[in-house]
């Protein structure tokens, strides 16, 4: 119990509560339900992407191409919509395309054995370049999109827009997948100890491939949501957003070395960044501060994490108190 109260997730929760309370003290309007719902809705795309990125990082890889994947699928979704394809087909198509783009990353990591940072550094420029090749750099604007296409993410159900429900659904599904399915536990096993994973019958490369596929599919979903919500598609949609995604993971305690972290931490990381982003205009600070603040948050998060996990030396001298690990069952 004590461990649960001092865990990383708990510390991050305290930080979020303290920060929100501080803001609310001066600007009570920030914590009205509608304002909080707004903040959540604005953070929804980040949350969906972070789930995918978290899985990739758990397997000791990194996906820098998420924002480019998002932009490409978003553009394709807008073009399909423009060609008169019904929305019921556009969304699955966006997800499928995202999954395929993720599979390309995954195959290069799994089958060719290129480090993921190199692969996704390459594909992030390639995917954005492909948007340019498809459109010649032209924008797809609001008036070129069908109403149904634009309406879905804003559609309110039970008081929340569909955008938020999308994020909630993804979080719920992956909370189960990560803890209760073989694949979910395999992500931890592969990142935690690749050698041992092989002996446990887990194919490390194939699991990494699955991680990239999921990350791509989720980016595909966000591609549609993003483009329809902002009602515009162009080459540089969500430019640099991959860094926010990685930042949220780091703040949420996902270890870059693989194998450590969870959905709860990742989402807390998103909420932390989301609150900063939405609170700045409220408290009257220029949005130009946001970048420096999230940068500082990343550095602090990784430093705190490292201090918590610092090796303390082997315990050889007879301890006065038996270590907690020796917890004996009655």
């Amino acid at each position: 119990m004590k461990a649960a109260l001092t865990s990383r997730d708990a510390l991050l929760t305290y930080a979020i509560i303290a920060m929100t309370a501080g803001i609310a003290y001066r600007f009570p309007a920030f914590i009205t339900p509608s304002s909080l719902a707004n903040t959540f809705n604005d953070t929804a795309p980040l949350m969906i992407l972070v789930i995918g990125q978290m899985i990739v990082i758990l397997t000791k890889c990194i996906d820098l191409s998420v924002a480019a994947t998002l932009a490409l699928t978003g553009m394709v979704a807008a073009l399909l919509d423009g060609a008169g394809v019904p929305l019921a087909l556009v969304i699955p198509a966006a997800i499928a395309l995202g999954a395929i783009l993720g599979m390309i990353n995954g195959l290069l990591v799994w089958r060719v054995g290129i480090p993921s940072i190199v692969v996704t550094l390459g594909t992030m420029t390639i995917y954005r370049g492909v948007i340019f090749l498809m459109t010649n750099g032209k924008w797809v604007n609001a008036h070129e999109m069908s109403d149904a296409f634009k309406a879905l993410p804003r559609l309110h159900v039970l008081g929340l827009p569909m955008m938020s429900w999308g994020a909630i659904a993804v979080i719920a599904v992956f909370a189960v997948v990560m803890t209760r399915t073989v694949l979910g536990r395999s992500f931890y096993a592969v990142g935690g100890n690749p050698h041992a994973a092989v002996y446990a019958g887990i194919d490390v490369g194939r699991t990494q491939f699955a991680a990239f596929t999921i990350s791509g599919a989720l980016a595909g979903l966000v591609g549609y949501l993003w483009v329809s919500r902002y009602a515009v598609a162009y080459v540089d949609v969500a430019g640099g957003f991959e860094l926010d995604v990685v930042a949220a993971c780091v703040i949420g305690g996902i270890s870059i070395a693989g194998g450590i972290g969870g959905v709860r931490g990742a989402i807390l990381g998103c909420i932390f960044l989301g609150i900063i982003k939405n609170a700045l205009p409220v408290i009257g600070v220029s949005p130009f501060w946001q970048m420096a603040i999230s940068g500082t948050a990343i550095v602090l998060a990784v430093a705190v994490n490292a201090l918590q996990n610092r090796p303390k030396g082997r315990l050889i001298l007879k301890p006065d108190v038996p270590p907690s690990a020796q917890k004996v069952q009655a």
Partner: peptide, 27 residues
């Protein structure tokens, strides 16, 4: 000095350094 992973640290300082530029210059 603190033995932190460089990829994460420099993703952080990447935002931090440019962020300071934005604070100073804005648009």
């Amino acid at each position: 000095g603190m033995n932190l992973p460089s990829i994460v640290v420099t993703i952080g300082t990447m935002s931090l350094f440019r962020g300071v530029s934005f604070i100073i210059l804005g648009d």
